[in-house]
Simulated assay, not measured.
Amino acid sequence: MYSNELIRGTLKTIILQLLSENDKMYGYELSKVVKERTKDKIVLTEGALYPILHKLEKDKLVTVTFDTVGNRTRKYYALTESGKNSSKVKRNELFDFMETLSAFMNPKTSVQCMH
């Protein structure tokens, strides 16, 4: 599992990415998929997940619908058009950042400054 410090800045991007791949998802489903896909290296706690979902809703990047499954009502999140655009931007930004970090962490493969 990675430190909270490392994953904190990527959670919004992770959530947007999952929602872009699916029509709609509910909170527990999002956390379960993240855990499975990362082989338990990233665990989305309720305390981390729901504030991000609420902020995405407030920023009109997701819409919320309710469905009853059995005797339980689930709150589903789906991307708006703005959310789809934001997902692409955040994803590209993260890929660019990973390339930058990789170049930084592997200085022999990046261009060296001559003094």
Rank of each mutant, 00 (worst) to 15 (best):
S3G: 11
N4H: 12
E5G: 08
E5M: 12
I7R: 04
I7S: 07
R8I: 14
R8G: 02
T10M: 11
T10H: 11
L11G: 02
K12L: 01
L16Q: 05
L18T: 13
S20Q: 12
S20V: 07
E21I: 02
N22R: 08
N22K: 14
K24S: 13
Y26D: 07
E29C: 04
L30I: 15
V34M: 04
K35W: 00
E36D: 15
K41Y: 07
L44G: 02
T45R: 09
E46K: 12
E46I: 13
L49A: 03
P51L: 05
P51E: 03
I52S: 00
L53I: 08
K55P: 01
K58V: 02
D59C: 05
K60N: 10
K60T: 08
L61M: 07
V62M: 10
T63A: 10
V64I: 14
V64N: 05
T65D: 12
T65A: 15
T65K: 15
F66H: 15
D67H: 13
D67G: 03
D67F: 10
V69R: 06
V69P: 03
G70S: 12
R74D: 02
R74A: 08
R74L: 14
R74E: 14
K75E: 05
A78M: 12
T80V: 07
N85Q: 05
S87L: 00
K88A: 07
E93F: 00
L94Q: 01
F97I: 00
F97Q: 06
E99K: 05
T100F: 05
T100E: 07
L101P: 01
S102F: 14
F104V: 11
N106T: 13
N106I: 15
P107D: 15
P107C: 14
K108Y: 15
T109G: 04
S110P: 02
M114Q: 12
